[in-house]
Simulated scan of single mutants.
Amino acid sequence: MDQIIGRIASGKVTDENDKYYFVQIEGETFQLDKQEIKKPLKLGSNFKGFTYENEDHKMQITRNAPKTQIDRYAFGKVVGFKHDLGIFVDIGLPNKDIAVSLDDLPTIKSIWPSVGDRLLIALKIDKKGRIWGQLADEEIFNAIAKPANNKMMNKNVKATVYRNKLAGTKVLTDDYQLGFVHPNERDVEPRLGQHVSGRVIGVHPDGSLNLSLKPRAYEAISGDAAMIFAVLKHDENGHLPYTDKSDPKAIKKFFGISKGQFKRAVGSLLKQRLVTEDDQYLSLTEKGRDQEVE
């Protein structure tokens, strides 16, 4: 039986009722949903499809084979979990979600995949003939990865977490490039399978990336501070003749905000070392000049 389950197999149609055809393969009978079949099958004809045990513990065969199979990896979406068992992944079967054992998940449950996250898995069969999801290992990710080039530097990317380690987080970008996030470049440790947004802060000779999940400086500030920073960035000299000593009416006329709002916004920019202030000018620092505004 374990040589059939979770694979594409061929058998003979031996019976039918109102809802199902019944296909026999090596002495085991599998039900086939008639809704899948546009042209009626004849008894005695051959049928080829993907075999599995559905959620009602019935052996079933489907012509709509999932991309995820034995020794064949594909992404599936997490749809649920049980703390004493593991998590469940939708691979496209109509009435069967695939369990990934808690033995294969991080020991820290707070970084277990959550509903909506995605995992790259293949199928495996245990000694009792049950189907489980098998997480892709480092070798699989290396095999499917594509090299990045130096043009990726400072680009925004989307990526899926595939390994959580004390030394950092490993991800695969949506363009199938390998990336690494050092603990200093994240505010919290992301979940396994989480889809994250980051930016490229380094490109290695082997084509892998260093990423940061922290916001850019101009993204980390908001409202008035972001507006003032953008105005400074667009000034040819990178400075403006406005400080906390400027006339409130002049500040209101130029920036459209009160002097109190201006001082709080400038304080935020000073704290992030994006600007300096003297008696006459508010100026960009070297860090502020290097920071892009999109």
Rank of each mutant, 00 (worst) to 15 (best):
M1Q: 05
M1C: 00
R7E: 02
K12R: 15
Y20S: 05
F22Y: 15
Q24F: 01
E26T: 02
E28W: 05
Q31L: 03
K34V: 02
P40Y: 01
G44H: 11
I61P: 00
T62E: 02
R63N: 11
N64V: 10
K67T: 11
I70W: 03
G76V: 07
V79G: 00
G80N: 12
H83N: 13
D84R: 05
D90T: 06
D97P: 04
D97S: 13
V100Q: 01
D104H: 07
I108K: 15
I108A: 08
S110G: 06
I111C: 08
V115E: 12
G116D: 13
L123G: 01
D126R: 06
G129M: 15
W132E: 06
Q134N: 10
L135T: 05
E138V: 11
F141Q: 06
K146L: 11
P147H: 05
N149G: 14
K155Q: 11
T160W: 10
V161Y: 03
L166C: 00
K170G: 02
K170Y: 15
D174C: 03
D175I: 10
V181P: 00
N184A: 15
E185L: 07
D187T: 10
V188Q: 14
H195D: 14
V200R: 02
I201G: 00
G207N: 07
G207T: 08
G207M: 10
G207I: 12
S208P: 03
S208Y: 14
L211D: 07
L213W: 02
R216T: 11
Y218H: 11
E219Q: 14
G223I: 04
A225F: 02
K233E: 03
G238I: 04
H239C: 07
P241M: 04
D244F: 06
P248M: 10
K253L: 04
F254I: 09
F255H: 03
F255C: 08
G256I: 11
G260T: 08
A265C: 05
V266R: 00
S268R: 04
L274M: 12
L274W: 00
V275L: 10
Y281F: 14
S283F: 02
T285D: 09
E286N: 12
G288L: 06
V293E: 13
